[in-house]
């Protein structure tokens, strides 16, 4: 083989190594028997995996993260589905601008969003941390919801709504009877994407934490600053497998990658 024909396979291997490598290291480290987070792991045990479930703050922050991911994503969909519908069905003046603005948070760094929320919403209006987190996560997920739902709406012919109306349905009824069932896959995909995005979100949540109110990733960072044992690695592995499981099921049953 020439150097030229080796180039592509080697690049590919390197890319895979960089993508998967850290993940494999973390997974290996979670099964360590040693006292500190280290690689290669010292021995094999399940003690750190077991410990994850005993840390009180992990349980609380996991609950918080789960609440934000489910609640925030649901709220984003409740706002995002009608918004997407309006954007795709009505040729409103400035629809493109609205689309861009709605998508903006995907581009704007989370740090800035978090800081802005803290400085201009939370502090001046005395908004509770939980509510602030909820609003922040809703706002974060909204662009993803609009994008994914819009994509599936654009694939759906709008004349079926008129057909439903002519068969006796109201406009709103037509939306629920023939639009929603046909974009169900898109909505589920948006939900999963939103859930994962919200769950893994750090920068915004970093600014919005208070006594006893933290998201899981932020809590993990805080934990690591004090205790440097492999339980954080164990928790990371568990979360990673959870995400992979969700995406796998989604792809299997919804053809998730069509919408994202």
């Amino acid at each position: 083989m020439t150097a030229r024909s080796l180039f592509i396979p080697i690049t590919l291997l390197l890319v895979i190594a960089f993508l998967i490598g850290p993940f494999l290291i973390i997974v290996a480290a979670s099964f360590s028997a040693g006292e500190t987070l280290a690689f290669p792991p010292q021995g094999f045990s399940l003690r750190w995996i077991a410990k994850v479930f005993t840390v009180e703050s992990f349980r609380a922050s996991f609950g918080m993260s789960l609440f934000l991911a489910i609640g925030g994503t649901a709220a984003a969909l409740v706002l995002g589905i009608p918004a997407s519908y309006a954007l795709s069905r009505y040729k409103l003046p400035g629809a493109e601008i609205v689309r861009t603005v709605v998508s903006a948070p995907i581009i704007v760094p989370g740090i800035i969003v978090g800081l802005a929320l803290l400085r201009y919403i939370v502090v001046p209006f005395q908004v509770g941390i939980t509510l602030a987190l909820f609003l922040a996560h809703t706002a974060l997920v909204l662009p993803y919801a609009v994008r994914v739902v819009s994509a599936s709406l654009d694939n759906l012919r709008s004349d079926i709504e008129e057909a439903a109306v002519l068969l006796g349905s109201s406009r709103l009824g037509a939306f629920f009877r023939v639009v929603m069932p046909n974009i169900r896959g898109g909505i589920m995909s948006a939900f999963i994407l939103g859930f994962v995005t919200s769950f893994n979100q750090v920068p915004v949540s970093l600014f919005l934490s208070g006594p006893g109110v933290r998201t899981l990733p932020v809590d993990m960072i805080a934990y690591m600053e004090i205790v440097f044992d492999p339980s954080v690695a164990a928790l990371s592995s568990l979360l990673a497998f959870l995400s992979i499981g969700i995406v796998f099921i989604a792809e299997r049953f919804l053809g998730f990658s069509r919408y994202v």
Binding site: D159, E162, L166, P181, N182
Partner: peptide
């Protein structure tokens, strides 16, 4: 009743 050129059947 209106029959559309595209038929407009409900795909689901």
């Amino acid at each position: 009743g209106l029959m559309f050129q595209s038929y407009a059947l409900f795909p689901h």
